[in-house]
Nucleic acid binder design. Structure first.
Length: 380
DNA sequence: TCTGGGGTCCTTTTCCTT
DNA sequence: TCTGAAGGAAAAGGACCC
């Protein structure tokens, strides 16, 4: 198989190119007022945008421009911490409707050129180009260029593409040349191009696994590959150990999956301020019911029911816990979800302030005779 | 002044049944 | 009736990803 991995770079204000910008937090309304006041988003002068140093409130950064990353600011960082590192950075709100529109255009463009596509979130996809006519030309580079050009013409967005024998390597390859790059990695390049990289670059090795590997004296993928498979299995267990060994050698036989059924649906919210279960009881009740209603809406809109109801809460000290319960019959109505979730709440210590509450439904089944295609259309 | 929201998958623990 | 083993399902937690 020849796999492509493509990700788009999303930034909707051309006048901010090259400046430190973070996206996250904030109110969309403020952003709209700004562009209205100046006659359209393209006309807003750079000085008029809000700065990180003036930001107040909870939240994390969804993404940051390369200029902002120079200051050590990055995804998932708290906005307050980011403000200390780069107070002059411009803060933009997350506009999910807009992101979804661009995401759709990005994926539509790709599917027209290479139909075997796996959706990996708003800005990423895998593509199997084994069967695409001309997909192998120049090692895949000419198709990659065509995809980039088509996406740019349709959306104005740039896109980085990695081409490799499998998904694991294609994803890593796409990072080599950001933004708007194309990288081709052949099987025989693994030792020269992949082995020098940090283990953390493997998709699936996060901060915890990386720390464990480092404690064992393993920094790079090459060092990981040098360890015996059985030794890794002894350290990390049969599944993870064997997977790590294969990944370090650039081996991955996962297919490009074009369709999958959802496993669970959930809604959760972090409060503006921490709420006390007794003191703020009524406020919490309203939020809790609202979450159940939103999950129920999601289920009904997408045509699913679920048997397992779960709650999640996070205390003010950031410890979190979950409880769930499986019902005899699948359900999708807000009242029944609320009732089951209410029972779960009784099984949890409510002796300190909460910062987050969530409701989840899993063990899902399709609830009607709708075809997958119809559900797909209605779900977005 | 810390640390979002929506997911998937895996491991471990617990509970129930045989 | 008690005890223990074994196995499966459900529950809980955690790592990871975008």
């Amino acid at each position: 198989m020849d796999a492509f991995f493509a990700s788009v770079e999303l930034l909707r204000y051309p006048q901010l190119k090259g400046l430190p910008v973070v996206i996250g937090g904030g109110r969309r309304r403020a952003d709209d007022e700004l562009s209205e006041r100046h006659g359209g988003s393209q006309q807003v002068p750079v000085d008029a945008f809000p700065r990180l140093k003036d930001y107040v409130g909870r939240g994390v950064i969804t993404t940051a421009t390369y200029a902002a990353r120079q200051f050590g600011v990055g995804s998932a960082m708290g906005l307050m911490k980011a403000a200390r590192l780069c107070p002059q950075a411009i803060v933009l709100p997350v506009d999910f409707d807009e992101i979804r529109r661009y995401s759709r255009a990005f994926k539509d463009t790709i599917v027209e050129l290479a139909p075997v596509m796996e959706d990996r979130g708003v800005d990423e996809v895998y593509i199997d180009v084994t069967e695409v006519p001309g997909g192998q030309r120049e090692g895949g580079r000419s198709l990659a260029r065509l995809i980039q050009r088509s996406i740019f013409e349709r959306t104005g967005l740039t896109c980085s593409i990695g081409v490799a024998p499998n998904k694991l390597i294609a994803k890593m390859a796409s990072e080599f040349n950001k933004p708007n790059g194309i990288s081709i990695v052949y099987e025989h390049d693994v030792q020269s191009l992949i082995w020098p990289l940090a283990c953390r670059k493997i998709n699936g090795i996060g901060p915890k696994s990386d720390a464990r590997l480092q404690a064992l004296g393993i920094q790079t993928i090459g060092e990981l590959a040098a360890r015996e498979r059985d030794w890794l299995i002894g350290q990390f267990g049969p599944a993870t150990g064997a997977w790590m060994h294969a990944a370090a050698w650039g081996l991955d036989d996962r297919p490009v999956v074009t369709h999958s059924e959802p496993v669970s649906m959930s809604r959760e919210t972090t409060f503006e301020r921490d709420l006390h279960p007794r003191h703020d009881r009524s406020e919490l009740g309203v939020i809790f019911t609202g979450l159940c209603e939103r999950v129920a809406e999601d289920l009904q809109r997408k045509g699913y029911q679920g048997r397992t109801i779960g709650i999640k809460l996070r205390y003010d000290d950031f410890r979190s816990l979950t409880r769930d319960h499986t019902l005899p019959q699948p359900i999708c109505d807000a009242g029944t979800i609320r009732q089951a979730a209410g029972q779960l709440l009784k099984r949890v210590p409510l002796d300190r302030r909460l910062r987050l509450l969530g409701v989840r439904v899993s063990s899902m089944v399709k609830s009607d005779g709708k075809s997958d295609i119809q559900s797909d259309i209605q779900s977005d």
